[in-house]
Structures are given as structure tokens and as C-alpha cells.
């Protein structure tokens, strides 16, 4: 899984999405192909602001094995200001979260490949007023 993580580091660390210049739509996660314009797609990378709004969220209690220490954690659907919806963790207390909450991107650790393995960093979100 190491090369698989490394390949997307750029997009995970920094919210770099893609934009289709044909129709003007922004995508995150990045896409090589616009599902609206398909072969007429004209894709380029775009730096997203990292600000967004919580559309929905869940406090996760039944976690994958590697995330047991983090339990419970908050997963959310966040609509970024540029349009795309992203699935991400919220790095805050479960009690702090509410629908419609403004959030901003932060750099956090997502996990590690065991004690001897690599560390997975990426983007999480925190309440924007805290920024």
C-alpha cells in the first residue's frame, strides 16, 4: 500500500483538486475525466481553499482495527466552498459538530502502517471559528 499512498500524497496533504475548463466544474477527489463533459474534458489542477460546510456527519464507534485508538471519531460530508463534496474526518470533539458548521482544513495524521510502517498524513477539518 506504500506506493498507493505516496501517489496521492500531493492531493491528500494539500487540497489540490481538478477543474474542468470545458464546464467550469471543480472536482475533489481529483478526476482525470469530467463525468459531465467526458471526452470534451479539459482538466487542470486547482488549489482549493480548504473552507467548507458540514452537510452530514456520523460519530463512528465501530472502527476499522487500525483506528481503534481514535474511537469514537467523526466522519463528515463537507461541501467545499468551490463546490465539491469531500468525505473527511473532523478533528474535534463529537459534541462540537453540527450540520451546517463551517469548517477549515488542517494537516493531521490519519494512521500508520503498524509501528514499523509509514505514517499516513492527510487533511482533516476543524471548526472554522477555531482557526
Amino acid at each position: 500500500m506504500l506506493p498507493r499512498f505516496w501517489r496521492k500524497i500531493r492531493y491528500r496533504y494539500d487540497l489540490i483538486g481538478t477543474r474542468c475548463n470545458t464546464c467550469g466544474r471543480n472536482y475533489y477527489p481529483p478526476r482525470n475525466f469530467c463525468p459531465v463533459c467526458r471526452r470534451r474534458s479539459s482538466i487542470e489542477e486547482v488549489q482549493l481553499s480548504g473552507y467548507g460546510t458540514v452537510l452530514s456527519y456520523s460519530i463512528v464507534h465501530d472502527t476499522p482495527v487500525g483506528l481503534k485508538m481514535e474511537k469514537p471519531y467523526v466522519v463528515a460530508l463537507i461541501q467545499l466552498d468551490e463546490g465539491p463534496i469531500i468525505t473527511s474526518q473532523l478533528a474535534c470533539e463529537p459534541e462540537e459538530v453540527h450540520d451546517g458548521m463551517r469548517v477549515k482544513a488542517v494537516f493531521r495524521k490519519y494512521g500508520e502502517d503498524g509501528e514499523d510502517g509509514i505514517i499516513y498524513y492527510g487533511t482533516k477539518f476543524i471548526p472554522a471559528e477555531e482557526a
Partner: peptide, 8 residues
């Protein structure tokens, strides 16, 4: 926090 370290 658990997800914070020197890199973050």
C-alpha cells in the same frame, strides 16, 4: 492529540 505529531 493522537493525530498530531511534530510533522503536523
Amino acid at each position: 492529540d493522537l493525530d498530531e505529531d511534530t510533522a503536523t
